[in-house]
């Protein structure tokens, strides 16, 4: 090790010099593009995983794009921000840049949203999946009854399963994932009491290879239907594809992960909520309400994969369940 005093001195000087150099070339105006009277509606999205994860984060991007089909919107985004404090900086940055709507797409972002929304009372925030608006007039909360679609798909899965054995690959037993899995299980058991629905939470949202082994184990143990939630399911769908086992998807339309084996996907149509929120903002109402996606309000939809030869009778079971859940005659028990 070299003499320490020299190193410190040098590093201090280095840091000082860097700050000066950087500050000198960084003095410019950040070029605020404000004044958005007639311009597009500006939406910023902050999310924990990638916008193409065929799961949670993709669902919000697809939804905002669907809103964009009917009106002029401009989207900015920061994805992959699983570090909550980094998400907080991004949220604050977008708020400073006067976005018309700042979406914090992750239930772990709640605390920073509460903090930042107070600092920027004229900026509208939306966050999910949660119900709490913290009593703030500029925060909308949104969440989803993912158990409803899970229930309907669980019933179809139970009817489809010849082995009466279903495997569920979950990430960590919390939040939206737990809600979906519990709903799915309840639906399957309601359709076919005594069916084996085994759930394996692999303790990771990202370990694709472990999800693959979890699916392999289910198939080896006799499961002939698989489902799962979160972004690591691509490992499980690969197994389903090569073993020819049917798959039920959730969060986004997962037909692209296996055209031959995906039966149906529960798709989140956040645009149902977003359109409400945006309409409010147009009228000067920045939020304060909690929104819920359900089958009934069209925020949840079971999208069937046309390439999968699903028996009409089984499809009917699913549609009956959806109808029952919509009119309230069926409850998921969650």
């Amino acid at each position: 090790m070299k003499s320490s005093g020299k190193v410190i001195g040098k590093l201090l000087a280095l840091t000082a010099a860097m700050i000066m150099v950087l500050a000198a070339c960084g003095g410019g105006d950040s070029g605020d593009s404000g004044g958005d009277e007639a311009g597009p509606f500006r939406v910023a999205i902050v999310a924990p995983s990638a916008d193409n994860d065929v799961a949670f984060t993709q669902s919000i991007f697809d939804s905002v794009n669907r809103v964009g089909e009917s009106r002029d919107i401009e989207i900015a985004s920061s994805t992959g921000l699983f570090v909550v404090e980094d998400a907080a900086s991004a949220l604050r940055g977008y708020a400073e840049e006067d976005y018309d709507l700042v979406i914090a797409h992750g239930s772990q972002y709640g605390a920073p949203v509460e903090e930042i929304a107070k600092e920027f009372p004229e900026v509208a925030f939306a966050w999910g999946t949660e119900v709490n608006t913290f009593g703030l007039a500029n925060v909308s909360a949104y969440t989803v009854r993912s158990d409803e679609g899970g229930y309907a798909m669980g019933a179809m899965a139970a009817a489809l399963s010849e082995a009466q054995n279903i495997g569920v690959v979950g990430p960590i037993e919390v939040g939206d994932a737990k809600l979906y899995v519990d709903g799915f299980k309840a639906g399957a058991e309601a359709q076919s009491p005594g069916i084996a629905v085994n759930v394996n939470y692999i303790e990771s949202f990202s370990d694709v290879a472990l999800a693959q082994e979890a699916a392999t184990a289910f198939v080896a143990n006799g499961a002939d239907i698989l489902t799962g939630t979160a972004q690591m399911v691509v490992g499980a769908t690969g197994v389903a594809q090569s073993e020819g086992v049917a798959w039920f998807g959730t969060q986004s339309n997962q037909s692209s992960l296996g055209a031959d084996i995906v039966v149906a996907s529960q798709v989140y149509h956040w645009e149902v909520v977003l359109e409400d929120i945006i309409a409010g903002i147009d009228e000067g109402d920045l939020g304060g309400e909690s929104h819920l996606l359900t089958l009934e309000n069209g925020g949840l939809e079971i999208e069937f994969n046309d390439a999968y030869p699903l028996d009409g009778a089984i499809k009917q079971i699913g549609e009956d369940m959806v109808a029952g859940l919509k009119d309230g005659s069926i409850k998921t028990g969650q």
Partner: peptide, 10 residues
């Protein structure tokens, strides 16, 4: 800013 211990997502 959250004043809590968060583990969501690893």
């Amino acid at each position: 800013q959250s004043h809590r211990l968060i583990g969501e997502g690893g």
